[in-house]
């Protein structure tokens, strides 16, 4: 690489970083502005908006609701995804590629299409719009990610590990729980956090499948319609910090996973 291209590359890189972070920085900054209106100049600073959020029972309830959906979705997705990976991974059967493609489809179908389809389907089988419908919708979307990550990890496990467990007296179920599952741990942590973030962040499916109770993104959307307020900035900043921490932790476990063992 010549010196010239190196300079161009680094300029492009930093331009991208600025483009990525300036809006976030603005959003965070406005959450500390002591005024109802968003925009410069900022004359006074305050933590009041955070206090407002902490006392806003609706926001807190919605936060809990979104968390409950994210956790349930994650648990369900991990169980189904792991089961699918252990089933699809080692077994060879006719049409395996087709089964696998079908299983992965929900991950790539546009959210809006899948949301409408799920809405119609939920009504058809008499599932009320609400928590259960959202959890099912999110799970369908998340399972392929879990399955892919777990399959990747599973393919690195030496066959002899399971054979050794069987040899030492474990039936196939005990061998799975005592040897395979611990081996999958980094993959499950990574995939689990990814599921939580996907679910917590989702607007489209939650909007179409939800009942009267909004999830956090749906609530923020509703609040925006009645006008921008620094309270929204405060909520967003809290969410940003939490998801960033979770995301980085997930990224770390995934990296450990790729290094093996």
């Amino acid at each position: 690489m010549t010196r010239h291209t190196r300079i161009v590359m680094s300029v492009v890189y930093w331009a991208f970083v600025i483009y990525l972070f300036v809006p976030l920085a603005l959003m965070v900054t406005m959450g500390f502005k002591d005024s109802k209106f968003i925009g410069f100049p900022i004359r006074a600073w305050t933590f009041d908006w955070y206090a407002t959020v902490m006392q806003d029972t609706q926001v807190l309830a919605v936060f809990g609701y979104s968390m409950a959906i994210a956790v349930s979705t994650t648990v369900l997705s991990l169980i189904i995804g792991t089961w699918m990976a252990t089933f699809l991974g080692p077994n060879m059967f006719r049409g395996k590629a087709i089964v696998f493609a079908l299983a992965c489809l929900p991950a790539v179908i546009p959210g809006i299409i899948s949301a409408i389809a799920l809405r119609i389907f939920a009504r058809l089988i008499d599932i009320e719009p609400g928590m259960l419908a959202i959890i099912l919708g999110h799970t369908v979307h998340n399972v392929p990610f879990v399955a892919l990550v777990v399959m990747a990890r599973l393919s690195t496990q030496p066959k002899s590990h399971i054979e050794a467990a069987r040899d030492l007296g474990a039936d196939s179920i005990v061998a799975f729980f005592r040897v395979t599952l611990p081996y999958l741990k980094p993959a499950l942590i990574g995939a689990g956090i990814f599921c939580m973030l996907l679910s917590f962040d989702d607007f489209v499916r939650a909007f179409f499948l939800g009942g009267y109770q909004p999830t956090l993104p749906v609530l923020i959307f509703a609040k925006l319609r009645s006008g921008m307020s620094p309270e929204i900035n405060a909520i967003s900043t809290i969410v940003l910090i939490m998801t960033a921490i979770l995301g980085l932790w997930a990224e770390r476990s995934m990296r450990r996973l790729n290094k093996g063992s």
Binding site: H161, E163, A170, Y183
Partner: peptide, 20 residues
């Protein structure tokens, strides 16, 4: 009989020690 139901144990080529 499956491996877990016979009094035979094995030392594997790659040892297959459980890493966790």
């Amino acid at each position: 009989k499956p491996p877990n139901r016979r009094d035979v144990n094995m030392v594997f080529q790659d040892y297959a020690l459980f890493p966790h």
